[in-house]
Design a protein around this nucleic acid. Structure first.
Lengths: 121, 121
DNA sequence: AGAGCATATACGTGTCAAGGTATATTTAGG
DNA sequence: CCTAAATATACCTTGACACGTATATGCTCT
């Protein structure tokens, strides 16, 4: 479990993180809202804490967990290198659609076959 | 392998994606630059293609792979919910540091113990 | 048609992480 | 002190996936 990307690859962990955006929560509150068994919640919280995504404060028998910003910034930093690229592509798509508005579709000789990704369900 | 997050959890795949930022590349070029065995490259490219991260065009025996924007936007969209939160925290940190500049550190009664994340190597 | 290059796929193997169940630990309150 | 509540941890099992090796497919050129 070395990278922040592996941490957020787990759906339950992402759910926990999303839950903590609104405010800090105790383990029991997370357990109830997400309908997961308590050990599961505790184990994921441990992973999240060791990765720096959350921190906890003690309140009697409860532990209140809240978000920490650093790892998110790390993900954002990685994403940054692609951001320039994808906004360019959105622009290109818009220009393409503009052109389609004006002229009817032309038969293109398709010497190149483009392999499309699988449609995602 | 259902989510985009699982796709980018794999370090070799992230390396391939970063490589494709500069320009499209053939399998062989990726293989040489990243020093990984050819089947490994092909298998990762397959995963990336089915997830919509890349598309390929045929050029004789070569296949040229290039990035597609959609999945990155999906990651960005997920990250968005935390972005507001973390910029707030950066601001708070800055204000905190400003205050430390002016006044010497005051002994605070630490009724709450905050569990810090493990230092990352 | 045959050889050789580029890429994809099949198959067997090992590792690691997530889940479930049970139990330990800590704390409040009577 | 003893009990109950809240949370953490231990142990086991299972499944997924990444890797290596071998082989198949496809294309070009002579």
């Amino acid at each position: 479990m070395e990278s922040v990307f592996e941490i957020i690859a787990e759906p339950n962990r992402r759910a926990i993180l999303s839950l903590l955006v609104s405010s800090q929560q105790s383990v029991g509150e997370i357990e109830r809202q997400l309908r997961m068994p308590q050990p599961t919640v505790s184990k994921h919280l441990r992973v999240l804490r060791e990765a720096g995504f959350v921190e906890s404060t003690v309140d009697a028998q409860r532990r209140l967990y809240r978000l920490r910003p650093a790892p998110f910034q790390e993900v954002d930093a990685w994403l940054a290198q692609f951001r320039r690229f994808w906004s360019v592509h959105v622009d290109a798509l818009e220009r393409h659609l503009d052109r389609m508005d004006q002229s009817p579709p032309t038969k293109r000789k398709t010497k190149e076959k483009t392999t499309r990704p699988k449609p995602r369900t």
